[in-house]
Simulated assay, not measured.
Amino acid sequence: MTALDAPAAHPHRTPAPRPHRPRRTLAARARRLGLYLLLVLVALIAGGPLYWLITSALKTNPQIYSYPPHWIPTELRWSNFADAWRAAPFGHFFLNSLVVSVVGTVIELAAALLCAYAFVFLPFPGKKWLFLFLLGAMMVPGHVTLLPNFLTVAQLGWVNTWAGLIAPGLGSVFGTFLLRQHMLTLPAEVMDAARIDGAGHLRILTRIVLPMSRPMVITVALVVLVTKWNDFIWPLIITSSDDMRTLPIGLLFLRDQETYANWGAILAGTVMVIVPVLVVFFLAQRYIIAGLTQGAGK
């Protein structure tokens, strides 16, 4: 059939009506507006204290104590950070926190990876019961083990040392649990193909499991890092000199040194403590979101 043979369009034919799309009702718009208002309220509750902390670190004492409060500082006092650095040995505090957090996180993450891989891919008797026992250990409050850990570390001669700060926290049941639950979702066909090609367990872990589990590994590493960075009770118990104190203990030391309650310097020291963790979080947030949402959809 050619173009001349095609039937001509009817001159009086009207186009087919488009399907009617119902407009968004007033109730739906009200619910959406209420959801936005709720999100704004949650953001204010979560970000309000952080904003007050950062702005107060740049205020003078009269501005901090004034009522009604000054939400925007009129005079930026950058010398608060220098006062905090001079009042306490923050150089030692930063070094100790960095060593304890980084070394402890690396060792704890490695142990959690190996344990999780063993629970998922290695057959051994009593595996399920042992995992349930480890889950039960998560229910025990950490303060219950403070005295046994201190007695053990004291007998080893590790009081007031980096080893004493790091060793008691090397076992991570929480990290093992998260990594095991993620490894259970990995495709078994890939592991079987690797075994057929002659790959051993270490090669499977480093070449297959780790690249496929990168978001979850980074999420666990950040959780462990923040926990160690903010730990207060154990460093306070196991250290006895200012040279071995960590940053949370350093803030207490700074508070004791500021006889006249220079809250500008104290809050400036607090900002110096939380900024490294915030920077790490913002750099790794896309991996954290991916790690927490993996398995939510197919």
Score class of each variant (00 low, 15 high):
Thr2Met: 03
Leu4Phe: 09
Leu4His: 08
Ala9Leu: 06
His10Gln: 13
His10Cys: 15
His10Lys: 14
Arg13Cys: 01
Pro15Ala: 15
Arg18Cys: 11
His20Cys: 08
Thr25Tyr: 04
Ala27Tyr: 07
Arg31Asn: 12
Leu33Glu: 10
Leu33Ile: 07
Leu35Lys: 11
Tyr36Phe: 13
Tyr36Ile: 15
Leu39Val: 13
Val42Ile: 06
Gly47Phe: 09
Gly48Ser: 15
Tyr51Glu: 06
Tyr51Gln: 10
Ile54Cys: 11
Tyr65Asn: 09
Tyr67Thr: 14
Tyr67Ser: 14
Pro73Arg: 10
Thr74Tyr: 13
Thr74Cys: 04
Glu75Leu: 15
Leu76Val: 15
Leu76Ile: 09
Arg77Lys: 03
Ala84Arg: 00
Phe94Ile: 14
Asn96Ile: 01
Leu98Ser: 06
Val99Arg: 13
Val102Glu: 14
Glu108His: 02
Leu113Asp: 00
Leu114Asn: 07
Tyr117Val: 00
Leu122Val: 08
Gly126Pro: 01
Trp129Asn: 08
Leu130Pro: 00
Phe131Arg: 04
Phe133Tyr: 13
Leu134Tyr: 01
Leu135Gln: 10
Thr145Asp: 04
Asn149Phe: 04
Leu151Val: 12
Gly157Ser: 02
Trp158Arg: 08
Trp162Asp: 02
Ala167Val: 05
Val173Pro: 00
Phe174Val: 10
Gln181Gly: 15
Leu186Cys: 11
Leu186Lys: 13
Ala188Tyr: 05
Val190His: 10
Ala194Gly: 09
Gly198Glu: 09
Gly198Thr: 08
Ala199Cys: 13
Ala199Leu: 13
His201Phe: 02
Leu202Glu: 14
Ile208Cys: 02
Ile208Ser: 07
Ile208Thr: 08
Ile208Tyr: 12
Leu210Tyr: 13
Leu210Asp: 14
Met212Thr: 14
Pro215Asn: 09
Pro215Ser: 09
Met216Glu: 04
Thr219Glu: 02
Ala221Asp: 06
Thr227Trp: 03
Phe232Cys: 11
Pro235Glu: 07
Asp242Phe: 03
Asp242Gly: 06
Asp242Pro: 07
Thr246Val: 05
Leu247Trp: 00
Gly250Asp: 05
Asp256Trp: 04
Thr259Phe: 11
Tyr260Ser: 08
Ile266Cys: 03
Ile266Phe: 03
Ile266Glu: 02
Val280Tyr: 10
Phe282Ala: 15
Tyr287Gln: 14
Tyr287Val: 02
Ile289His: 05
Gly291Asn: 07
Gly295Ala: 13
